[in-house]
């Protein structure tokens, strides 16, 4: 905002003093460029604010995730591993008993 208001005030004395304007001054004084710079600066302002609030939100969400979900994931993963281990052991130890139980029908 400050930049867009500064620019005309700087170039205005020049244009007032001289009847003939340089091509650069004429370009920078044109309405399109002025509105463009204004739009760009306000866009930058909004983008900065947006980035900051997104960063803040991401920080809050990330820490909440770290506290709430990460332990849960680790714990569930270990529980599953334990379950698998138990299944393996059961299948290793369980086969003889399963074979013995299936043996009587085979002898029949």
């Amino acid at each position: 905002m400050a930049a867009s208001s500064n620019r005309p005030s700087l170039s205005l004395p020049g244009s007032g003093g001289r009847s003939k304007e340089g091509i650069l001054a004429r370009v920078s004084n044109s309405a399109i460029v002025q509105s463009g710079t204004r739009a760009a600066s306000s866009a930058a302002f909004v983008a900065k604010k947006l980035a900051r609030s997104t960063g803040n939100a991401a920080w809050i969400a990330g820490t909440a995730f770290l506290v709430l979900c990460v332990p849960l994931i680790i714990v569930m993963d270990r529980e599953q591993q334990l379950n698998e281990l138990e299944m393996q052991q059961a299948s290793l130890l369980g086969t003889p008993s399963f074979a013995s139980s299936s043996a009587p029908p085979a002898t029949k």
Binding site: L68, L72, V75, M76, E79
Partner: peptide, 12 residues
């Protein structure tokens, strides 16, 4: 969560 080796409680 009450699991075999741990108990985990979370709250928001």
């Amino acid at each position: 969560y009450m699991l075999r080796q741990c108990r985990l409680r979370g709250k928001i």
